[in-house]
Simulated assay, not measured.
Amino acid sequence: MTHADDRHDTPVTLITGATGGIGAALAHVLHRHDLILQGRDLDRLQALCAELPRARPLVLDLTRPQTFAELLEEADLGRVSNLVHNAGVVELGRVAEQSHEIWTHTLAVNVVAPAELTGLLLPRLRMERGNVVFVNSGAGLSASPGWGSYAASKFALRALADALRAEEAGNGVRVTGVYPGRTDTEMQQKVVRQEGHTYDGDLYIRPETVAEAVRYVLEAPRDAVISDLTVRPSVR
Rank of each mutant, 00 (worst) to 15 (best):
E195P: 00
E186N: 15
T209I: 13
Y204D: 11
E208G: 06
G196W: 10
H197Y: 08
T198D: 11
V214S: 03
V192G: 01
D184P: 09
V214A: 07
D202Q: 12
H197D: 15
T185G: 08
G201T: 02
G201K: 02
I205N: 11
G196L: 06
H197G: 09
Q194R: 11
V191G: 08
T185S: 10
A213F: 01
Y199C: 03
E208M: 03
H197N: 14
V214W: 05
R206C: 00
R193L: 14
I205V: 11
Y199K: 08
M187I: 13
T198S: 12
L203K: 12
G201R: 01
D200M: 00
R206Q: 15
Y199I: 02
I205D: 03
M187H: 12
R206A: 12
V210Y: 04
Y204L: 14
P207K: 06
Q194K: 12
I205F: 01
Q188D: 11
L203E: 07
T209R: 13
R206Y: 01
K190N: 15
D202I: 01
M187Q: 15
V191L: 14
K190R: 15
G196N: 10
D184I: 01
I205A: 07
E195R: 14
T185L: 07
T183P: 08
Y204F: 15
Y204Q: 03
Q194C: 08
Y204C: 08
R193Y: 10
Q189M: 14
M187N: 09
R182M: 14
D200K: 00
V192R: 04
V214K: 08
L203S: 03
D200T: 02
L203Q: 10
E186Y: 07
H197C: 11
E212S: 04
A213G: 08
K190E: 15
Q188F: 10
D184W: 03
D200V: 07
D202V: 06
